[in-house]
Amino acid sequence: MKTVTKNIFLALMIVLAMSSCKKDEIMGNTKQVLDFHWHSKIGTQDAKYGVEYTTKGGVKFELTDWRYYVSNFVLIKEDGTEYKVADKIFLINIANADYSLDSVPVGKYKGFKFYVGLDSVTNHLDPTLYAAGNPLALQNPPIHWSWNAGYIFFKVETLFDDSEDGTGSPDTESFHHVGTDNLKRTISLMEPFEIKSGSDKTIHLQMDLLEVFNNVNLKSESVTHSFGPEAPLAKKIADNWQSAFSLD
């Protein structure tokens, strides 16, 4: 009888101990925070407004706006299975490099992928319904087409030097507004990484605007809104996105 009481007491103690400790202190964390350090580069330099840069084609320019949407993050596990990160949409802007996917499962991964752009449902939801601070809320300057309800996935505006000999000053406006459902692109960054229990992970990646403008002549291809005769230039830019990304 005494033994039974003792056993019950012991069992109770164990239960108590287990419930008082957090699960992860016994088993280790099953999830850790995954952050991004997301650099906006122009060649080897950090992208800044009001600084002069030169395209690979030799055209001088200053950045006046560069923002883009990324969404639908998928982490690819070592065994090839995928972990889809729900509801994470970032509006990447050059002034901020810190974006977080929050908690994701610990483990070894082969790489990850994401959209530049938005899925076709999210793209056409009513932007007036989001609270300020939500990346999908209306922005100033806008990054949503009010005349064809949908988001501008990728927006770059510059002042460039349109002089023939390149000795002028960057004072001609360029507009590259890339969007519409057809122009979202899946970006894959396949380098192995591990998320270890007990330590949050930061992935460093960068997008290089000079690669976005690879084979784009800023002087003759200075405007696209992704529609009609301007659509091919938008597609050209969207097709450059993958090679413009790299891991640091």
Partner: peptide, 24 residues
């Protein structure tokens, strides 16, 4: 191009050729 009246409001306010302004 726009599915309802509520969202329509954005277009003339933001259009460069109309009110050239911003909802914010």
């Amino acid at each position: 191009g726009v599915p309802n009246l509520e969202q329509q409001v954005l277009a003339p306010i933001e259009s460069h050729f109309e009110m050239d302004f911003n909802l914010i």
